[in-house]
Design a protein around this nucleic acid. Sequence first.
DNA 1: CATATTTCTTAAGAATTTCTTAAAAGGAGG
DNA 2: CCTCCTTTTAAGAAATTCTTAAGAAATATG
Lengths: 233, 233
Amino acid sequence: MGKPCILVVDDDKEIVQAIAINLQKEGYDVRKAYDGLQALDIISTQSIQLVILDIMMPNLDGLSAVLKIRQEKNIPIIILSAKSEDSDKILGLSMGADDYVTKPFNPMELMARVKSQIRRYMTLGDMNTADKPNILKTGGLWFNPDTCEVTVDGEPVKLTATEMRILELLMRNPGRVFPAEEIYERVWNEPAYNVENTVMVHIRRIREKIEINPKEPKYLKVVWGIGYKIEKI
Amino acid sequence: MGKPCILVVDDDKEIVQAIAINLQKEGYDVRKAYDGLQALDIISTQSIQLVILDIMMPNLDGLSAVLKIRQEKNIPIIILSAKSEDSDKILGLSMGADDYVTKPFNPMELMARVKSQIRRYMTLGDMNTADKPNILKTGGLWFNPDTCEVTVDGEPVKLTATEMRILELLMRNPGRVFPAEEIYERVWNEPAYNVENTVMVHIRRIREKIEINPKEPKYLKVVWGIGYKIEKI
DNA sequence: CATATTTCTTAAGAATTTCTTAAAAGGAGG
DNA sequence: CCTCCTTTTAAGAAATTCTTAAGAAATATG
């Protein structure tokens, strides 16, 4: 089902970057956010399997963010904090966090804790996908990568494997425009050579299935001369 | 559901006692062990939901104990240790522990970490098969992993061991689509190499037994190019 | 408004994936 | 050592999807 995707949230971009590099070395996908609101947005629209979160941030403080994330999804949360007071740890954990790491931290220890959480989430967390699925949503278009279910305004839609992979790519990055070449390379895992047409035909078929009026697409739009995107709704 | 039961393992009886009192205050049941072998015995014979374990013990060292516990049950393990070296933490976590607390520790922090683990263990809904009779149902298809009984609309069906393991995996995650490779790895516990056919034949045999019309399966469906799933009914 | 460029549509054949069937290989129990 | 049951392998059949290519439509440009 692809590599686990981990969201790193900290207002210090350097720290985010450092953690991200380590995570990628371990084979994880990474998303980055620099404040709590951004983090919540990503969590509710993308499929995230674990959150690493600094609790001292602008906009929305970390502890509230933990609460909100808990409300929305049942994924592991690791708190990062400069506060090493026991009372802070207790507070963080009782807010719903799954682990608490104090700055400065050993990157290797953080990785070990991440792995531990992911392993637990994976091995006994299968059931939770049924309960609190990581559904990608934009407007009335919902996609559940775990069950391969796609619905438009509640109506189920049947996509083929390739169609789903394309849709997943676009929906995981709402608003971002993907050139046909990039879509091909990322979906087929092959270098793209003279494949614009191929991608286009697939786009067309997806539109036929998910759009009410394929000629005036609501979700799957084209940006002339650049590529395709899923509208961020 | 009963209160969660927590096993505390340490060769220092005073520490065990102190932790036990705290746990009982929080409303947990407690079991005590003073070395690794005793701990393993209790874990394999009693219903335990979480283990707190000192890793420096006579008879069986703590890290091996963690490994053995992991093999046997999928319950959360919190390591207690006087070693606060990062390398020790990393080792402990990668052995399969879920958290690592260094001595001396704040009892309240330990309680917070216990609660966090228990909450996750509960909400993710892993069934400790020893505890609860735990029948998986989707529509008319019932499966009791404890007694290995499978019935379709009340009619008993005889599955082989492998068939049951596959069915169990799928039924524990209704709706979720599993690629043949993943099924193989999780059922056989071996890396999957050129095994799609093997899995497929087993799927076919399961269908033959549980489906009224194997050609139009009601329960065990395929998602083209992706994998198999048990329909969520 | 005319032209050039880009995207869209369509349908058929190629390619891939899954299904079926049968038989060989592997293991457990007597 | 033999028998029976389970698991794996293999190959051809069937079903579905993917790709190609060519003409139509739409959009940008001058």
